[in-house]
Design a protein around this nucleic acid. Structure first.
Lengths: 244, 244
DNA sequence: GATTGTCTGATTGTCCGACAATTATGATGC
DNA sequence: GCATCATAATTGTCGGACAATCAGACAATC
């Protein structure tokens, strides 16, 4: 005998946010559209303004609504890559992802991203990557900024891949790996040089639209990263995001 | 001269949710802990209960707080895989991810998951996979349920991989692919047989802890999937999630 | 003893009304 | 046309209110 399902009596603020969410997902509310005022929404849905506000907070944190530059109006928006990636990073942190887990994913995903970027890159992406590689090459760069540049390099690769799925998968990995990378760059003097070499080789392969070479170099780059991690005295079982 | 940053006067509900969020992330509030009542929170943070509620809605939709089985109390929780994956699916839908993009990611990620699952699977995972394969083998199964079983097969693989990063990367892909799979199973009579063959081979490889074989079969399985998609008359440029 | 009914207090969901601070809007002057 | 300013509209936050319902204690019933 099948068990009964608990009958659902969703509170109004959730029904309301679901209603707005579905209107956004089916594009009846497009990216960039301004939402009516809270009072107006309250009138249309026949609920109190407080209820409307709870529903809005719900959608806001999902990245479906956003405030533009200090204004008060809410606009429909697509979740930004950074926001979605941040949520994923949070989730992974709370699920006790270890560095080894992240690295395993990096090893799988990044070579594919590099290959796709090589095959689909345009001129603008090439220029951006070149700038970043050049910037990282400067030996006087503080560690913090060096790490940030590596992050931007990986993100630029993600964009150059032209695949939004890669873009979104890439982001949390980069976010999770940045703190570890800071430690490595801080402790291992040779780390920077190895990164420079890899980045230059990647840039060349991408310039040649040689996906195979890009993928191979990225594989090497990621392997290097693991070695650096271990040489810096950090075990692969380290839980990522523990320090943040 | 660097430009001035707009000074941040974040509204109270956002500061409050940030405060709670950081307490959850640094484990001062652990998974499973019950939150104080809204009135008590309002007292402690010296804000109005309405403000507290807006902050809570914020965390609730991020999956950091959850209500347990019909109760009223809120408990700290880790975002579920399904919830995070759903958010990712939403984001990808709004970013106009095409089937080809999803497929490209599948081709990269799933073989790696299969290999990891083969190497790290335990008995329980093996039994579960066997059940699912057996269930899918029944020829009288309605299409809807067949699709659901395929989804559960992929999810079980993700769990068996023992890598939370894979688990979370897997989920949105499965969610995005399920509708397409339904169409394929509906239109192509041979689809089921090919899936059964692939699942059986995967199960065997995983039982043998043969990561190489599991990876190879999964690659074939995913290639099959693309062929099925095209034979069903759907172009790879189809925007996924357009119909939902 | 286990289940069911009843009471009581606490808590959530929702509403109403209010007001200061800030932003949008429209009129005004150049 | 463009800058300036007064005015209206909107958000953020507050206080209080009340019905619904949930948790726990206790009594009644089988």
């Amino acid at each position: 005998m099948p068990e009964f399902q608990p009958l659902e009596h969703a509170p109004a603020y959730r029904r309301l946010s679901a209603a707005l969410r579905s209107r956004i997902l089916d594009r009846r509310l497009k990216d960039g559209d301004a939402l009516p005022t809270e009072t107006e929404l309250a009138r249309q849905f026949a609920v109190n303004r407080s209820t409307v506000r709870e529903a809005l907070r719900n959608l806001e944190s999902a990245g479906l609504l956003r405030r533009r530059g200090g204004g008060k109006k809410l606009y429909v928006s697509r979740p930004t890559v950074a926001a979605v990636g941040g949520g994923l990073r949070e989730a992974l942190t709370l699920h006790d992802a270890r560095f080894g887990d992240v690295w395993e994913a990096l090893r799988v995903v990044e070579p594919a991203i590099a290959a796709a970027a090589a095959e689909r890159r345009d001129e603008a992406a090439l220029v951006e990557l070149d700038d970043l590689v050049r910037g990282f090459g400067q030996p006087t760069l503080p560690a913090i900024e060096a790490v940030a540049l590596v992050g931007r390099f990986f993100r630029a690769l993600g964009r150059a891949s032209g695949n939004p799925v890669f873009l979104l998968a890439n982001e949390p990995l980069v976010q999770l790996v940045e703190p570890s990378l800071a430690i490595i760059i801080d402790r291992l003097p040779q780390a920077r040089r190895r990164i420079v070499v890899a980045q230059r080789a990647l840039l060349a392969a991408i310039g040649d639209q040689d996906g195979e070479a890009a993928s191979a170099w990225m594989r090497r780059h990621i392997e290097d990263f693991r070695r650096g991690f271990e040489q810096a005295g950090l075990p692969m079982e380290t839980v990522v995001g523990a320090g943040s």
